[in-house]
Computed example of a mutant assay.
Amino acid sequence: MQRPPTFAAFACATAVILLTACAGDDKDTEPPAPPPGVTAQVGSATSVHVMWEQAADNKAVTGYDVFQKGVKVKTLPAAKRMVDIDRLAPSTAYSFTVRARDAAGNLSAPSAAVPVTTPAPTPEDTKAPTPPTALRGQVDGSRAVTLSWARAADDLGVTSYDIYQEDSRIHSVRGSEATARVTGLRPGTVYTFTVRARDAAENSSSDSDAVDLTTASAPGDDVPSTAPTDLKATVRKGSVDLSWTPPETGEPVKVHELFLNGKPATTIVWGVQPPAGTVTYTLTVTDKPGTRYSIKIRAKLPDGKWGDFSAQRTVVIGSQSQ
């Protein structure tokens, strides 16, 4: 004979229903805060560079939307907090705001509106500015650096300076400035920075000399750097001479990997006993004069893993290295 449900069975079923209802109430309905620190700087007669700081959220920001007078013009992932707005009209006033999004689709209120006016066009300007000089840098803890340089010259005027890290533009400041603070870096990491000047006709200078900066280790992190140091690159006829100091690992470093323009190019292997101290390698090149190479090195550690990358060096075939 089938027995009727007991009180305990009814209680359990009720508990399940209540738990299910509670779980449904856990939906994220709180929007992020508006992004702070929004700036808009002229890049040229037809472009503006918009930047902002990270917005706060009760869980996590997943992206940002950039608006021009209420019309969305760009959508970006959470890790990116700067963007160039192109194809603008010269001699025109614009106003930009930024809104943050979270995983639940909640959208923040707009940031404070930032006005900017593009300069007049310079259609006959084909002359690039001179490169900035005397680039210097200071490490600001484990996640930021401050760069400074001597201003470039241009026949009609520099409108902005673009900061590059290993050939990727990561920051821009207006042409009247000669310093920039770069944030969002990783602790205990070597970075190679260069700066280019840009005018209103979008002519960019060549790179400044490079500066290498290593951010401080995170608090409590006593792990030594595994990056090769003192990388030097000298252009010769048909080759590039490289030299560097392998990292201190407690054992000889027998293998290094050489990267050209961000991609692995060759593995350098020494025998049972690699050279002590500074090591050298000659890279044969067959490309025509004017070809540009970005070079960096990493070592294979005794545990078989690859270590951190060295600072990057940029050379141009047929000219001296940077």
Rank of each mutant, 00 (worst) to 15 (best):
P228W: 00
L135P: 06
T62L: 09
P228N: 04
W149P: 10
G137K: 01
H256Y: 10
T122W: 10
A8Y: 08
A197W: 02
V173Y: 02
R186L: 13
Q273Y: 07
S206H: 09
P110T: 01
G157Q: 07
Q138L: 11
A89L: 14
G43V: 00
A197R: 04
V223C: 08
G184T: 05
W306I: 01
L242F: 10
T14Y: 08
A180W: 02
D25K: 10
D221A: 04
A100T: 02
T14C: 14
D25I: 12
E30R: 12
T20A: 14
A150H: 13
S225K: 09
V158C: 08
K232N: 12
D86K: 15
V253K: 01
P132I: 06
V114E: 01
E251N: 13
T266W: 10
Q138V: 12
G238C: 12
M82N: 13
L19D: 15
R87T: 15
T286Y: 12
S243W: 07
G307I: 04
A13G: 03
E166Q: 10
S95R: 14
G188T: 06
K263H: 12
V48R: 02
V158M: 08
V315M: 05
M51L: 11
Y64H: 05
V182L: 06
P246F: 01
T75Y: 04
A23R: 10
K254A: 11
T117F: 04
L283M: 07
F96V: 08
A45V: 03
S204A: 15
K59P: 00
A21Y: 09
Y191R: 07
K232Y: 10
G220I: 08
T266Q: 14
V116C: 07
V66P: 05
T214S: 09
L260Q: 06
T226E: 05
V98F: 04
R198M: 00
D25F: 13
L18R: 07
F10Q: 06
S239E: 09
Q273C: 03
L18W: 05
Y94E: 12
D207Q: 05
T122G: 10
A79V: 14
K296S: 11
V83T: 14
G318D: 06
S47E: 05
L231C: 03
K127D: 09
A13E: 05
P224D: 09
N106D: 02
A56T: 13
V61P: 08
G220F: 03
I85G: 12
L260P: 11
T39N: 03
A152H: 09
S206V: 12
K74D: 06
A134Q: 15
V253S: 00
T249I: 00
N261C: 10
P131R: 15
P219Y: 06
G105I: 01
D140V: 03
S148M: 10
D207F: 11
A13Q: 04
V316M: 02
A45L: 02
T183R: 12
T29L: 11
A112K: 14
A11R: 13
V114S: 01
P123M: 02
H256V: 09
S44F: 00
R292Y: 03
M51K: 15
A144F: 01
V211Y: 00
A89H: 13
P4Y: 02
V83Y: 08
T249A: 10
S172F: 00
F67G: 06
L135H: 03
N58W: 01
T6A: 07
D222A: 14
T286S: 14
P224F: 09
P252Y: 13
A104Q: 04
